[in-house]
């Protein structure tokens, strides 16, 4: 029992920093990122910790990515209702598009150019990543940072390998454009 707990703890310790950073980049908010990591860990421990160890990592990142996607969905719905409920608000302002959340860029992140001028490469990179549509962002982080292959990434994202290739390629292209004047 003790060994099992230690093995699971070591695994969680090995993924928690990266999980936090992925969630933080995607939400732009540390508190929400911690909530997402907490939910992911609880779900993973409850549902998947009995699975073979070689499945742990992709399963954990699958839960994490689903939680990040849930966060964006809820955020989108909340924003829609907030706009609709504003008493004297601009109810005709359709600030929320018709596109599905997977294709929406994070509206919270702006002024990437300004940050690049300031020479803050890390902040510029984060801003550029956060500005990507969610599915591109996920594909990029899983492929380029977590170093998953196309098949693993597709399984974690719950989409086809072709979609992963498309999202990843677009993400690389967009990031290179956004960061071309920077040192990255």
């Amino acid at each position: 029992m003790r060994d099992s707990r230690r093995t699971i703890e070591e695994f969680l310790a090995s993924v928690e920093r990266r999980a936090f950073r992925m969630a933080q980049i995607s939400t732009g908010n540390s508190e929400d990122a911690l909530d997402i990591v907490q939910d992911s860990m609880f779900i993973w421990v409850r549902k998947y910790s009995e699975k073979p160890e070689e499945e742990w990592r992709p399963l954990f990142f699958r839960v994490l990515q689903n939680k990040i996607r849930d966060w964006h969905r809820r955020n989108k719905v909340r924003n829609r209702w907030r706009i609709w409920l504003q008493p004297w608000g601009k109810s005709n302002e359709e600030t929320v598009g018709e596109n599905s959340i997977e294709h929406l860029a994070d509206p919270a992140v702006k002024e990437i150019g300004d940050q690049m001028v300031l020479g803050h490469s890390m902040q510029a990179l984060e801003a550029a990543l956060a500005a990507l549509p969610l599915r591109q962002q996920q594909a990029f982080l899983l492929r380029a940072w977590e170093e998953m292959n196309v098949r693993e990434t597709a399984a974690v994202m719950g989409c086809s390998e072709g979609s992963v290739k498309t999202h990843y390629s677009r993400a690389v292209h967009a990031l290179r454009n956004l960061l071309e004047d920077h040192q990255l």
Binding site: M1, R5, I8, E9, L12, A13, E16, R17, R18, F20, R21, S30, L34, V37, Q38, M41, F42, W44, V45, R46, S49, M122, E126
Partner: peptide
């Protein structure tokens, strides 16, 4: 960026991890 996570956040991650483990054990 991963290396530079603040001590406070690391401490909270540690606590979250322990709570998650407690749900099982």
């Amino acid at each position: 960026g991963e290396e530079n996570i603040s001590a406070e956040t690391l401490s909270r991650l540690h606590r979250i991890r322990q709570e998650a483990l407690n749900t099982k054990y």
